[in-house]
Structures are given as structure tokens and as C-alpha cells.
Design a protein around this nucleic acid. Structure first.
Lengths: 322, 322
DNA sequence: TTGACAACTGAACGAAAGTTCACTTTAGTT
DNA sequence: AACTAAAGTGAACTTTCGTTCAGTTGTCAA
């Protein structure tokens, strides 16, 4: 014969299940207040509170958020919490094989548009993604906007002219553009010193350091990546940089996997805002994505702890993996 | 060229979608308070309230209650609201072809067990379903419980003795049983009068009318149903009853589809609590189910407006259909 | 430009929900 | 039968939520 208390316990717990389920139904499906639920079920309101939280604890009540965007939102929140971002923007990717630059550019353009306001000083880098975001930036007539280059340009314009980005960006908002009329990478430390001292570049850098927003990318350093950069960086330099631990660059500041600038002579020949200054700009928007950028994005996040990261779905998942 | 405000509107609404989705995610998935959500998103708390209700209004947030019991709960609530019941109990059915009596009996037994308390006077009918519920009634030692028969018995005990139900029920709670030592259906109105006046049956009926709870079934009248009843009711009587509009009985009170007692001499030969008295008992538990009972259950509900209905899934759906 | 209108935003209030504590009831034990 | 431990229940309080109203911003048309 079965122990009587066992039978009793089962019956009681079943009745509890039933009551809990009814409470959940009336509260969540019929939308009654907890007081009304209590009245309908003939129990105390506090009991209903307890039944409902028990139901949620048991996972008997599940809340779903519909739409394919929901998974993106989850990714965004995960990125934000994992990397301490104020905001992560993850662009959806339809074709996993395709280059994510286009979607990232669209997302970045939209976000930058929303950031712009009168009286703003914004520092900008350059790169393929930023360039492609131009059509997605919605120009407005804003007063007292200043657009400042965060680094020099390159001599031979190819697919696009880096300097063009800051300039066209400024144009969109009828803003003043402060460009750096010098190469990002010069031949020697001396040449850099001369340019900084004598060509008024100091002024532009000062202004860049007062910017409220910085928008920039992150460059990889593997053979395949950032083809344009190969014009400036020959294979020997690239090799010596990777030997020094570099995984990529932010504004031509080459950093290792930890986000620390590598000890390498090339860093003395760069004409750009240094990472410390960049990290002091209140809003730092890092725009980057792609499989070959994972490592450098992580490094860049450590180096300048951006407030905003704009990337794509696949890159986001890779960044979160491990 | 597209109108600029169209572009603007799209962009704005997209941003709104995004914000709403993020709010919904952080609130529902991460479980933050609305104040925290507001802080995370950098907006006002009230805005978050509005975003969330907008998301719910749009159906972007769906709440699900899991488990196969959830659909039963829905049926129960529908029955309760449709027929003005305090409580509907719907037993799950595994096989649509099978007789639902067993599951209804189990549900009824469990519910009756929960209803029982010391000092209670409970009136009971009889029938196959109630008989089968006996093993599911959990007996306890309760003080001052009185079990009263609501109607007479039958002479030839076959599969079960109707009187046995009240008696065994009383035994379960070590209660006093007040049975009606007479047939439910006698040969003539005179015989009924004599029995009532001279055999002390009046006393039992008085007590039945003071019961706090009544538990009873509903009987169909078609050829196939309630086989036991055929002992008392011959084919001619049955025919004349249906001709009079009867669709079945509650405690041998034959009623039409509207729940109104039919005008028929047989009603003068019945020894049972009449429907008006039954309807005055505070808690009225109707236990019935099966495809052939649909019509009589509806009629019974109209006749005595039970506070509790115990039935099965399929019957419940049929009752709600139309 | 300027004025009117609409949409959005924020503050204050009242309602609802959740938590903590003390108490009652109940089951098991001596 | 009386005691103890534990589960359950209810009341007061705090926090959170939703609604209403007034103010603001932005937008469109004249």
C-alpha cells in the first residue's frame, strides 16, 4: 500500500499546478489585474503574485518578441554588455558569403545622421566602409558644425580619396571641414616633426582633440585585407609589424591583440590623432566588420573603448564567440 | 527625386521601431525595470512605458503559456464565461473515441475532495460517472459531515447500486449518510404522496434543501444512453417524454431544451429534490460529459445554473460550439 | 519668415505589483 | 494528546507602473 502522504502530496501539488496555470491564464491572456485574478480564483492577491512569479520561475510563461530584428537586438545587447558599449548596432546580413561592408555602411550612415546636431565638432577617420556610408547619411542644414580629420590622407587617390570623406561629410551638413593636408604616413620621424611644427597641423589636431564625436574604422593587417593600404605599407614593413605583434591599426596607430600600441618605428612616422587622445573624445564610434577584422576589432575596443560599435551580424557573432 | 519628407519619415519610423524593439527586449528578456530601461536607452521612463504598450498593441510581444494544460485552461475559462460558472473543470481526453466517463470521474473526485470540509452538508445524486469518481475521492476524517441523497434509488441493483454512492461517499469522510429508502420513480402519484407523507422522507428532503453543496449528473434520453435507466423507463414512456419535448433529466426531473420541466405525468411519480430546491443550494456541481449529453447539459445548465461544471475536453468544445 | 498645428516629451498623481514580516495552520513527532 | 518544524497565508509598506495633463519642439503652409 502506498504511503498516504505520498498520495496527498501529489494531489496537493496537482491542485497547485492547476491554480497557478489558471492564474497565469487569466492574468496574461485575459489581461486582468492581479486583484481581479485573486477575486476570480477566490484567493488573496498576494497569493496571485506568488503564483505568477512561480509560473515565470518555472518557465511556464514565456514571452517572445517577434520579428527577425529581435535576434539582432539580442546580439546588440550581448555586445553592449560584453564590451561595455553604450550602443552596439548590428546590421542584418542576408548572404553569409557576401561582403558586409554595404550593410554596415548603411547602418553607420543612419546612426551618424541621428547623432548630428547643431554646434557639433566631429572627428572622422576614413576607410572603405565610411566612404560607402556617405549615401546613407542624411544631410541637413545645421549651424556651427565642424568636421575634423583625425588623420592624414594618401597621395595616390584610387578607388576613393580618403580626404574626400571628411570633405563630403562636411558638405552634407554645410559644415566647416578641417582637413589634414598631409599623408597619414610620412617617410621619417623628422618629416613628421617638420609637418606638425611648420604647417599648422598642430591646430587641426588640437581641434580634433576637442571633438565631441569621433567616427573611425579599424584596419586589418593580413595579406588580403585593406588593399588600399598596401600602397603605403610594403610587404617588409607589414612583416616587421606583425613580428612586433601588430594585429591591425586604428587611425594608423598599430596595435597588438591587447590593444596596446606596438613598439615599432612606423608609429613615429604616422600623422594622426594618437590613441590616448582618441580615447578622450566623449563619443567614439567604431565602424568595422568582416571576418578578417575580428581580431583587430577586439584590439581596437581594448585600445579606445568605443562608446558605439557598428558592425554586421556575422562579425557580431564571431566577436561574442569564446 | 523622392520627396524629402518621405525619406525622413521612413528613417524616423525605422529608428522608432528599433528603439521600441530594444526597449521590449531589455524589459521582457533582460527583466530590467522600466526605469532602468529608460536609463539604458537614454530616454524618459514614460517614453519606455509608451514604447512597451505600443509593442504590445502591435503584437510584437507575445506571451505564451506552455503545456497541454494551457488549452484546457482556456476551455475552462471560456465555459465559465459563456455559462456563468464559478468554475469549469475540463478533463483531458487522450482518445476521442473512448468513453470520457473515466477522466471526468477522476476530475470530479479530485474536485469534490477539495470541497469537503468539516461541518458540511452535501447532497448527492447518483449515476455512472459519480460512481466511478469514488476511487478518486480522497477520504478524510472530518467532523459533522452529512451526506444526503437528493433522490431515491432503484430496486434492482445491476452494475452498481445507486444508493451505494451516497453511502460509500459518507463512509469516506466518516460522515452520517441520509439516504432515501424509496425508488426514484414510483408507479403512481398516489404512491409518491404516501411515501413522502408516511415514511419520513420529508425529513430527508428538508435536509437536502439545506445542503451547502449538491453534486449531481445529467441524464440523456436517447435510446443508447443511460442504459440503467431503461429498467425504469420503458420505450413508450420514453417516447411520450420526448414527444413532450424532454431532452433528458436532472435528478429524474425531465426537462426540455430550455431547461424547463416538461409537462408530463411522470414528473408526478418522481421522488427527488425538485429543480427549484436544487437551484437554491449554494454550490451546485454538475458532473457530466459525452457526445450524447450535450443537449441535456445545456438544458441542465439553464435549469439549475450550476456553480461548477465538470466535463471533458470534447464535450467542452461541443458545448462552446455555435 | 511667421503662425498654426500636430507630434512628441516630461511631471504629477493614482493604481498596481512585489517584498518583508508576523501569524496561522498543518503535518509529523514525542 | 501536545509539541515542533515547516509550509502557507495575510497585512503593511515600498517600488514600479500607467494615465492624464501641461509644456515643448518641430513641421508645414501661407
Amino acid at each position: 500500500m502506498a504511503p498516504p502522504h505520498a498520495q496527498r502530496a501529489r494531489t496537493k501539488s496537482d491542485a497547485g499546478d492547476e491554480l497557478r496555470l489558471r492564474a497565469a491564464w487569466i492574468y496574461y491572456m485575459e489581461g486582468e489585474t492581479q486583484s481581479n485574478v485573486a477575486a476570480i480564483l477566490g484567493v488573496n492577491r498576494i497569493t496571485v503574485t506568488r503564483l505568477l512569479s512561480e509560473a515565470r520561475r518555472r518557465g511556464e510563461v514565456t514571452i517572445q518578441i517577434k520579428g527577425e530584428l529581435a535576434s539582432l537586438t539580442e546580439l546588440q545587447r550581448d555586445l553592449e554588455k560584453r564590451f561595455g558599449l553604450q550602443r552596439a548596432i548590428v546590421a542584418p546580413v542576408s548572404d553569409a558569403k557576401a561582403d558586409p561592408t554595404a550593410v554596415i555602411a548603411a547602418a553607420a550612415g543612419s546612426h551618424i545622421s541621428a547623432l548630428m546636431r547643431a554646434g557639433l565638432t566631429i572627428g572622422v577617420g576614413w576607410g572603405r566602409t565610411l566612404h560607402e556610408s556617405l549615401p546613407h547619411i542624411e544631410g541637413r542644414n545645421l549651424k556651427d558644425v565642424r568636421v575634423v580629420s583625425l588623420l592624414g590622407g594618401i597621395m595616390e587617390a584610387r578607388r576613393f580619396n580618403p580626404a574626400e570623406f571628411a570633405w563630403r561629410f562636411a558638405e552634407l551638413f554645410e559644415a566647416e571641414g578641417y582637413l589634414i593636408p598631409a599623408p597619414a604616413l610620412v617617410d621619417s620621424a623628422e618629416a613628421r616633426k617638420v609637418l606638425l611644427d611648420q604647417c599648422g597641423l598642430e591646430h587641426v589636431f588640437k581641434m580634433a582633440q576637442t571633438a565631441e564625436i569621433a567616427v573611425f574604422g579599424a584596419g586589418g593587417i593580413s595579406e588580403g585585407s585593406t588593399t588600399y593600404k598596401l600602397d603605403h605599407l610594403n610587404e617588409i614593413e607589414r612583416k616587421s609589424l606583425t613580428d612586433a605583434g601588430a594585429v591591425g591599426d586604428v587611425l594608423y596607430n598599430f596595435i597588438d591583440g591587447e590593444g596596446v600600441p606596438v613598439k615599432h618605428p612606423i608609429n613615429d612616422r604616422v600623422i594622426s590623432v594618437d590613441l590616448e587622445s582618441l580615447a578622450r573624445i566623449p563619443q567614439r564610434v567604431l565602424v568595422s566588420g568582416g571576418n578578417d577584422k575580428i581580431v583587430v576589432i577586439k584590439a581596437a575596443i581594448r585600445a579606445v573603448s568605443p562608446t558605439v560599435l557598428v558592425t554586421d551580424e556575422l562579425t557580431a557573432r564571431s566577436l561574442l564567440k569564446d
